[in-house]
Design a binder for these strands. Structure first.
Lengths: 227, 227
DNA sequence: TAGATTGTTAATCGATTAACAATC
DNA sequence: TAGATTGTTAATCGATTAACAATC
């Protein structure tokens, strides 16, 4: 895509995926009162190459200064802005089961500007419950609520069977981002942002690596025990 | 590492990360009674290239047959074995807060051979509670319990402040895999498998993309030209 | 056999790392 | 100014895609 002069150039998702981690380390440094840091020092802390750090940051413009390094506070703030943490995001949780309620109770999100506005569930037994002063509503109220409350993120914590249908409803209602915990790949228009958290996939990956390493040990020269 | 003749060659984490997704689609096909599928057809279903599928699968040996394709049931089973789903894994959850309890209640894990054996929390108010017949125990019992119950995976759902210390205890006790939900990068020996689920990182990534797309729309002529 | 489709090699693409000139 | 360290270009590496010979 030819980019307009004001537009950021297209950043790879690999880089974007690393931003929260930079943000986390910079936040810690800031809390420790560290004022500036070189890509070299940061790279040792984070166990990545200094090259990668400089390359990554330069996607967004010159945050550093030759001969000085990076100002921790400034860089922290700038990355925070890139991540949209300088604004407020209203979100709803769809699916008030264990996971949905757990996420609803996760206070840290609020600190970052993500405000839980509503929860929904199709189970009448859950409707009416409260999670941090937010009442669980029936699914029928979903569209109205989203429209009236300026919701921009929907968190999907429902079984996969219902996920696709709910996603369609969300898209039709104008939601622009879905944080998807349902164990299915949603089929939505490409302008809708979807971030998947497939917990079982993650667990299986761990299981693969566990099995793999055990196997290596058995096959290698008796190596390190399995017990 | 020089590999012995019996040893699988080293597979990139990119490939491994895709295995659970293959497994998921193959499971659905199997449930629908589909007997065989070509890399071409599967690629259309999964929205990846047929080349990638063939390349990925061939890391593990020839699962297919020229002129025929892949037998769905067989491939499903083989990938399941690669993912270690043919064995039983005993796991404990450390941190019995909302997230820990939600994961403990997640029945699907059990179906795949992951059995919740114990839960731990340092909060006396949570100790004694039950999650699916598993009692929450005090942290003092952690080491003994792990040793006596053949635990191989620990799920860490505690605040980041305590995570590093608990991880050290786990490593000393001989745990071999950690599913880490604490918002911190654990420092453990490389033979310990760690799979991180950094929920806030994930949400921030979504937030970046949301902000980014909004920005593009405002700046571009409102166009759909994402990419 | 002829057609289909894999397994695998070769080409391309993208991401990471290295190097160094620019500059604070 | 001299030293430090970035920003950025060039080199390398790895992952993805394309092509096609092998083979069912």
């Amino acid at each position: 895509m030819e980019v307009g002069i004001l537009e950021e150039k297209d950043i790879s998702q690999a880089v974007i995926g690393r931003l929260p981690r930079y943000f986390r380390y910079l936040g810690e440094l800031r809390d420790e009162g560290v004022e500036r840091i070189s890509s070299q020092d940061l790279s040792e802390l984070m166990k990545v190459t200094a090259s990668q750090i400089r390359q990554d940051l330069n996607n967004f413009g010159g945050f550093g200064q030759q001969g000085y390094g990076y100002n921790v506070e400034y860089l922290y703030d700038e990355i925070g802005k890139l991540l949209g943490l300088d604004r407020q995001h209203n979100f709803v949780i769809i699916g008030a089961g264990n996971l949905g309620r757990a996420l609803g109770n996760y206070l840290n999100f609020e600190r970052r500007g993500f405000i839980l506005r509503g929860m929904f569930d199709q189970d009448p037994g859950l409707v009416g419950r409260e999670v941090r002063n937010v009442r669980v509503m029936p699914m029928e109220e979903l569209e109205r609520f989203i429209r009236e409350n300026d919701i921009d993120i929907a968190v999907l914590t429902i079984p996969k069977a219902g996920a696709e249908e709910v996603a369609d409803r969300l898209v039709r209602t104008g939601i622009r981002a879905i944080w998807n915990f349902a164990h299915v790949d949603l089929n939505v228009p490409e302008e809708i942002q979807v971030e998947n958290v497939h917990l079982s996939d993650s667990l299986m990956k761990l299981s693969y690596n566990l099995r793999r390493y055990t196997k290596d040990c058995e096959e290698g020269q008796g190596g390190i025990d399995r017990r």
